[in-house]
Write a protein that binds this DNA or RNA. Structure first.
Length: 722
DNA sequence: TACTATTTAATTTTT
DNA sequence: TTAAATAGTA
């Protein structure tokens, strides 16, 4: 067997990992160290060299994107399509299991997956119907609690309320929510995992079957596993399978949504004799960037420990820019991107990263003014759009009449005279008789409701029945097309003013195209419509569609994880923003922020700029800000401060030492006061109207007698006091 | 039912 | 500031 293609171009550590004997393995893979490469080559090695059947492999990732990439690269490496190879997300795999064994999982065959938006709607409705104090119980918090418990693998009956009435209330919400979902055949994301886990736990022969089948488990981004995911893996691994997990404790940035880095340590206990391999050679960034990243992350405690290195160039130092305010910061970034493009580089190679989404606004304004195309990551995805979810709700009702979430969504959309009153009557009947809204509507339409409302409800019920009949023998695409036409959604959105309605109709048509292009997987043995609906829930699609123009990339540091760019800006590096205010008081929170900073730094391949503003408008208020403490953690020798063109003397470097910046703000008031008369070389005499900022960036607004009002930077303007 | 005024709060996101 | 949720009005 010629193993060259599989082992070629791997470094020693990578090769060692790929060729490990069949034992539990933990690969600590630093940023840019070839993590995916190792996983892909390991799979190829097992299949091609160890002779393992693709059947016996299970590879798990967190995102659909990662799963698709992995499958693609494996097939490319092996040169053949690998059928029967289970590669997928935790949720996707759990879903597949639940479909196959829906009876054992105690689910209806046509159960529907709800996304977090659907879930929130259900919870809101539930809280309303329970008539609890809505000031006390915020739907989001209840949702947070329920998902948090599910992520830990906990059912309501397992929770001890400790005599705390608030907790008891939350547990009871959780219970009621479960009943609602069970009645409607609805499964939320966390439920997929929890059910799949219970499915195995309660059906030992089923579990044994999968344990026998999957002798090799491979897990990507292991540091991101939550309790239920880890429990699921451990169950599957049993005593004989050998998990091969890859992760980076320093890139664990999702603790807030249940991820536990501790699983890296737990793994070594649960699987004695685990081989640990560290991948520390980095193929992405310059030496300077890696040095900075290493220095910052070294401030965290309890790491596995690792130091990234490269045999490439040191590169340029990290550029640090202290902006006067957020506008100045944006202008600076725009100017650097201009330079970059002028040097013949692509805009798409430049990424501006920030801690929170709100920060994109100023940056966008700057880019728009400069006429530089850009793309903001995040935001609504295709299957999350209102009009798409409306259309899907009709489809779901057709497939599954008892789906209350969908019923509520479209019962009066477009408006058909079924107002809040009528819906409330349907709800209360449903509650009293523990049945679905659909059945309740049918039951009360004939007697309890008065003429007009009864007619409206009956015509809605008929509409759905008629659609279901009309559509029965059509193929998927025509089903979707028929539904968006007959439901009246197109008409409804046509009336919506502005361009919004236009776009919505385009999106609905796009949904038909998506249905046309959808290829059901014969292995899933599902109705194409059900499979399409599941797909829509599990894979919400791309954030922004038109990605192919060459444009600057704007995103949060979280969404930048896993990506790389030649030119990177870390913007808004100020204490309170990053690290975020809500994290600074908690050491764990602070360490997670630091890991996020590490993630940010290690996105950069060639050039890294760190910017912060001395003054920033937040929530409509001007605030003075201190440079992020993380800036001070980058040793001076890797940093070059970028100053405004003119010579500016900054008294002392203040990075890493809080307070100084505030002190400077005070100093800024030196000798300059409102109404002060000044003389300018060119503009002549004037009077100070306003001033802002401090140090080298202090600016004054001067009303000149002849030249009008102007903002001037004190350090350039050379004003004389009069 | 739909539009408008008022209040309130303000990370990070995938499935 | 601004987005979203709620309350009030036509």
């Amino acid at each position: 067997m010629d193993v060259t293609p599989i082992l070629d171009n791997l470094n020693d550590a990578q090769r060692q990992a790929v060729t490990l004997p069949n034992e539990p393995a933990l690969v600590i893979a630093g940023a840019g160290s070839g993590k995916t490469r190792v996983l892909v080559h390991r799979i190829a090695w097992l299949i091609d060299v160890e002779g393992v059947s693709p059947n016996g492999l299970l590879a798990v990732t967190f995102t659909n994107k990662a799963a698709a990439e992995m499958r693609g690269r494996v097939e490319q490496l092996l040169g053949i399509p690998v059928r029967n190879l289970w590669i997928g997300t935790f949720h996707g795999l759990a879903h597949r299991l639940l479909r196959r064994h829906y009876r054992e999982a105690k689910l209806p065959q046509n159960f529907q997956i709800i996304d977090s938006d659907d879930q929130l709607r259900i919870i809101k409705r539930m809280l309303k119907s329970l008539d609890v104090d809505d000031g006390r119980w915020v739907p989001r918090e209840v949702q947070w609690f329920i998902n948090g418990q599910k992520d830990e693998g906990i059912r309501p009956q397992h929770i001890d309320d400790e005599g705390d009435p608030d907790k008891r209330q939350l547990v009871s919400f959780y219970s009621t929510y479960e009943e609602i979902c069970d009645r409607g055949g609805l499964v939320d994301f966390a439920e997929l995992l929890l059910r799949a886990h219970e499915l195995w736990r309660e059906n030992p022969e089923l579990l044994a079957h999968y344990q026998r089948r999957f002798q090799h488990l491979l897990v990507d981004e292991f540091q991101d596993t939550n309790a239920i995911q880890y429990a699921w893996l451990r169950l599957l691994a049993g005593k004989t399978s050998t998990p091969f997990v890859v992760g980076d404790d320093d890139q664990s940035i999702y603790r807030w949504r249940g991820a536990r880095v501790e699983h890296i340590h737990q793994f070594q206990k649960d699987f004695p004799g685990t081989r640990i391999i560290k991948l520390e050679q980095n193929y992405r960034s310059t030496g300077m960037i890696l040095n900075a990243a290493n220095a910052v992350i070294a401030n965290n405690m309890g790491r596995m420990g690792k130091n990234l290195w490269t045999d490439g160039v040191d590169g340029d130092p990290i550029r640090l820019y202290a902006a006067y305010n957020e506008r100045d910061e944006a202008d600076f970034i725009v100017a650097r991107i201009r330079d970059w493009v002028d040097q013949g580089n692509l805009r798409a190679e430049a990424a501006v990263l920030y801690r929170s989404n709100a920060q994109s606004r100023v940056l966008e304004e700057g880019l728009i003014n400069a006429r530089i195309p850009y793309r903001v990551y995040g935001g609504l995805r295709f299957f999350e759009r209102m009009e798409i979810k409306d259309a899907l709700a009709y489809l779901r009702l057709i497939a599954h009449r008892d789906d209350d979430a969908s019923f509520e969504r479209v019962v009066n959309k477009p408006t058909r005279g079924i107002g809040a009153r009528t819906v409330e009557m349907i709800r209360s009947y449903a509650r009293a008789n523990a049945c679905s809204l659909w059945r309740a509507a049918g039951a009360i339409a004939s007697d309890e409701l008065n003429g007009r409302a009864a007619n409206a409800v009956l015509s809605f019920l008929n509409l759905i029945e008629r659609m279901a009949r009309d559509v029965e023998h059509l193929d998927l695409q025509d089903k979707v097309d028929h539904v968006i036409q007959i439901s009246g959604l197109i008409e409804f959105f046509r009336k919506e003013k502005g361009e919004a309605g236009e776009t919505r109709i385009e999106n609905l048509n796009e949904l038909v195209s998506a249905a046309k292009g959808f290829e059901p997987d014969p292995a899933e043995e599902m109705q194409p419509l059900d499979e399409f609906l599941a797909h829509a829930a599990l894979e919400a699609g791309e954030g922004q569609a038109d990605a192919w123009e060459d444009c600057v990339q704007l995103m949060t540091m979280h969404s930048a994880k896993g990506l790389e760019f030649p030119l990177v800006f870390l913007s808004g590096m100020e204490d309170g923003l990053f690290p975020h205010q809500r994290s600074v008081s908690d050491p764990n929170g602070l360490e997670e922020e630091r890991r996020l900073c590490y993630v940010g730094i290690t996105r950069a391949m060639q050039s890294l700029y760190i910017t912060h503003a001395e003054q920033r408008r937040m929530h409509g208020m001007e605030n003075f800000a201190i440079p992020s403490r993380f800036i001070g953690e980058v040793p001076d020798e890797y940093v070059e401060e970028v100053r405004p063109k003119v010579q500016v003397s900054r008294p002392v470097r203040s990075y890493g030492r809080p307070q100084t910046s505030v002190a400077q703000a005070q100093q800024a008031e030196m000798g300059v006061h409102l109404g002060q008369r000044v003389r300018h070389g060119k503009f002549g005499d004037g009077v100070i109207l306003n001033y802002e900022g401090q140090g080298p960036h202090a600016r004054v607004e001067v009303n000149f007698e002849t030249a009008g009002t102007k903002w001037l930077v004190l350090s350039y303007a050379n004003l004389d006091l009069m």
